[in-house]
Amino acid sequence: MNSGLRVEVADTRERTTALTVAGDLDLNTADVLRRTVEGVLRDHRTAILDLTGVTFCDSSGLNALLRLRRHTQETGGRLVLAAPPAQMLRLLTITGAGTIFTVYGSLAEAWEPHPPAATPPTA
């Protein structure tokens, strides 16, 4: 049974956007991820994918991530993975793909290089 995939914008800071990804990332849903992230990358240089809610990822999902990474590199951007679940980490490790992605343990860690814009002082 396919539980579907939800990809939603969680936060945006200047040219970086974080998206939450939840559900199965597989043959039936990989294109949803690709189209959504490519759409975000039209206006933002970096995409952080919060993968906490991913319940399953197969080779089609991995292929979508690899294509997105290549797309971001070709357009001068970055694709960052945050909090991939254990099954996804195993897939990244077994395939060697984990060495080409920037992977953080949490969304908060992924945001550290992208602090919120400072609030201007009031006069």
Results as ranks from 00 to 15, higher is better:
T93I: 10
V103C: 00
D31I: 00
A82Y: 13
P113K: 12
E8R: 15
V80K: 13
E14K: 10
L33P: 04
A108T: 05
C57F: 02
L81E: 08
Q87P: 13
L81H: 05
T95S: 11
G105E: 12
R45T: 04
T46F: 00
T72C: 10
C57I: 04
T20M: 07
M88V: 11
L79D: 14
N28I: 11
L92R: 09
P121I: 05
P84H: 15
N28F: 13
Q87F: 06
T75V: 03
T52G: 02
G39S: 01
D26F: 08
V21Q: 03
V21K: 06
T52K: 07
L33V: 10
L5W: 09
M88Y: 10
L27C: 10
A97V: 15
M1D: 12
A18F: 14
P121Y: 04
T52N: 03
P120D: 13
V7D: 04
G96Y: 07
G39F: 02
H114Q: 09
G96F: 05
G4V: 02
T46R: 05
R6D: 06
I48H: 03
A22M: 03
D58H: 05
R13G: 14
T95P: 03
G4L: 07
A83Y: 11
S60E: 04
V7Y: 04
M1V: 15
E8Q: 14
T36A: 13
A18N: 06
T72V: 02
I94N: 00
F56L: 05
L33C: 07
Y104Q: 09
G4C: 12
F101L: 15
L89V: 02
L89M: 13
V80S: 11
L49G: 07
E8N: 11
R6E: 15
A110P: 12
P85Y: 09
P121F: 06
A123W: 15
T17D: 00
M1K: 14
V32L: 08
R6G: 12
L49V: 03
T122E: 10
L19K: 04
T46D: 05
L51F: 04
E109R: 10
L66N: 03
I100N: 11
R42S: 12
L81C: 04
D24Q: 09
L25T: 01
T16Q: 03
A83G: 12
A123R: 15
V54K: 02
G98F: 14
T122S: 14
L92V: 11
T17I: 01
P115D: 12
P115A: 11
A123L: 13
M1Q: 11
A30S: 07
W111F: 15
W111S: 15
R90W: 11
D24R: 05
R78T: 15
M88T: 01
L51C: 15
E38H: 01
L91C: 04
V37K: 00
S59R: 03
V103H: 06
T99I: 00
W111Y: 13
A82F: 13
L92A: 05
D24G: 01
A22Y: 05
D11R: 09
A123S: 13
L41A: 08
T55C: 04
G76D: 06
T102H: 09
A118W: 07
G53P: 07
G98C: 11
L33R: 08
R42C: 10
T72H: 01
L107Y: 08
L66Q: 05
T12H: 08
A117N: 10
R69H: 14
E74I: 01
M1E: 12
T75W: 07
R70N: 12
H71K: 03
E38L: 07
A22D: 08
L27F: 05
T12G: 10
T20D: 01
R6A: 12
T17S: 06
